[in-house]
Amino acid sequence: MGMPNRKYADGEVVMGRWPGSVLYYEVQVTSYDDASHLYTVKYKDGTELALKESDIRLQS
């Protein structure tokens, strides 16, 4: 078993793309699913969504 190939840690605050949009919002990573390679993130309004790594970026 190798290390999970994840870029962002639980609790890390990053920018997540809103689905169907080009806009990124501040989100907190809450979990990562090794099987689906999706991150569960929480937006400031409390919305929780699963995002692909390509829809997440570090805060500038």
Rank of each mutant, 00 (worst) to 15 (best):
A9W: 08
V29S: 00
Y32F: 10
D34H: 08
L49T: 08
V13A: 06
Y39A: 01
S60G: 13
D55R: 02
E12Y: 03
V14R: 01
S54M: 09
Q59W: 11
D45N: 08
V41C: 09
T47Q: 09
V13R: 10
Y39N: 01
E26P: 12
D34G: 08
S21Y: 04
S54F: 07
K52T: 14
V41P: 01
Y24T: 02
R17S: 03
V22P: 12
T40S: 08
G20K: 05
S21A: 07
K7E: 04
E26D: 05
T40D: 03
D34T: 09
V14L: 07
Y32V: 01
L23D: 13
K42R: 12
E12K: 06
K52V: 10
E48H: 10
S54C: 12
G11T: 03
P19T: 03
G20Y: 06
G46W: 04
G46K: 04
V27K: 00
R57C: 14
G11R: 03
V22R: 12
Y24L: 05
M3P: 15
G46S: 04
N5C: 14
L49Y: 13
I56E: 00
A9T: 08
L58E: 14
N5K: 06
K52F: 11
T47G: 04
T30V: 15
A50M: 15
D33Q: 03
V22F: 12
L23V: 13
S60K: 13
Y43V: 08
M1F: 03
D10W: 03
G20E: 07
Y32K: 00
Q59N: 12
V27C: 15
Y32M: 01
R17G: 02
T40W: 13
K52S: 12
S60V: 12
P4I: 11
K44V: 11
K52M: 11
Y8I: 04
V29E: 00
G46M: 03
E26Y: 09
D10G: 03
T47R: 10
K7C: 07
T40P: 01
Y8R: 01
Y8E: 01
T30E: 10
I56F: 03
N5H: 05
G16C: 12
T30G: 05
V29T: 00
V27I: 05
Y39W: 02
S60F: 10
P19I: 03
G16E: 00
G11Q: 05
Q28E: 13
K44W: 14
I56H: 01
Y25E: 09
P19V: 03
S60N: 14
L38F: 10
L23Y: 11
Q28P: 00
D45M: 02
K42N: 05
D45V: 02
S36D: 08
L58I: 14
H37E: 15
M3G: 15
S31V: 03
M3N: 15
A50E: 14
V14M: 02
L23T: 12
R17Y: 02
P4S: 08
T47I: 09
V27R: 00
W18R: 10
D10M: 06
K52H: 13
V14S: 01
D55L: 03
Y25Q: 09
G20Q: 06
G20W: 05
K7A: 09
D55P: 00
R6G: 03
Y32T: 00
Y24E: 05
V29C: 01
I56R: 01
Y39R: 01
S31R: 09
E53A: 06
N5M: 09
E12C: 07
Y43E: 03
K44G: 10
L49M: 11
T40Y: 13
R6L: 02
E26W: 08
S36H: 09
G20R: 05
L58Y: 14
D33G: 02
Y24V: 02
G11Y: 06
W18E: 04
I56A: 01
K52C: 12
H37Q: 15
R57S: 09
L58T: 14
E48G: 03
E26K: 08
R17T: 03
H37Y: 10
A35M: 13
T30S: 09
D55Y: 04
Y8T: 01
K42D: 01
Y43F: 14
V13I: 15
M3T: 15
L58Q: 13
A9H: 11
A50D: 09
E48D: 06
S60I: 12
S60C: 14
R6P: 05
D55V: 02
E12V: 08
K7T: 08
D55M: 06
M15N: 04
S60D: 14
D34S: 08
Q28C: 11
D34A: 08
V27S: 04
T47V: 08
M3C: 15
D55E: 11
V14Q: 01
Y24D: 03
G20F: 06
A9F: 10
Y32S: 00
L49H: 14
E48V: 13
R6C: 05
H37M: 14
G2M: 04
E48N: 08
M3F: 12
W18L: 11
Y43T: 13
E26A: 08
G46L: 04
H37I: 03
E48L: 13
V22N: 15
V22K: 12
S60W: 08
S31I: 02
E26R: 07
E53H: 05
D33E: 04
L51S: 00
I56L: 13
A35E: 13
